[in-house]
């Protein structure tokens, strides 16, 4: 079972780093306005973000992560994930379109 593919590639880790920004901004969003409405909004935003990340994780676990095409697409995905993270602040509803574009790009 132990093979080179069992190890996580650096590009995958680079993609995961974009999640630092997402998690930080998501928690900031809730901390800025801690009420039930924003708790539900946090949940609603966390679902697509999680699902996009899980999609990449399962892909690399199933179909190798050491192909050039996978690496290039992961870098592009990192760009979209970073862009998505920038929409998560207290005025997030104003940046809804950027959120949708970033999510569609990730998918």
């Amino acid at each position: 079972m132990q093979s080179k593919d069992a190890e996580t590639s650096y590009v995958s880790l680079f993609f995961d780093l974009a999640l630092v920004l997402v998690v930080t901004n998501l928690s900031n969003l809730l901390a800025h306005t801690p009420n039930l409405r924003y708790l539900l909004i946090t949940f609603a935003i966390a679902v697509p973000i999680w699902w996009a990340w899980v999609g990449f994780t399962f892909y690399t676990a199933r179909y190798s992560q050491r192909h050039t095409s996978t690496s290039v697409l992961l870098v592009v995905a990192t760009l979209f994930a970073t862009s998505l993270a920038t929409t998560l602040d207290s005025s997030w509803s104003l940046r809804l379109r950027v959120f949708f574009i970033s999510y569609a790009g990730l998918r």
Binding site: M1, Q2, S3, D5, A6, E7, T8, S12, L13, D16, L17, L19, V20, V23, T24, S27, A31, W53, T57, F58, T60, A61, R62, Q65
Partner: peptide, 26 residues
């Protein structure tokens, strides 16, 4: 479809670590 399960603890462990790191930063 074959799956490589050994990647899961690394990737999911890392994402959890990122979340805890954010909490620590906070």
């Amino acid at each position: 479809a074959r799956i490589n399960p050994l990647q899961f603890p690394h990737r999911f462990g890392l994402i959890f670590m990122i979340g805890l790191g954010t909490a620590l930063f906070c």
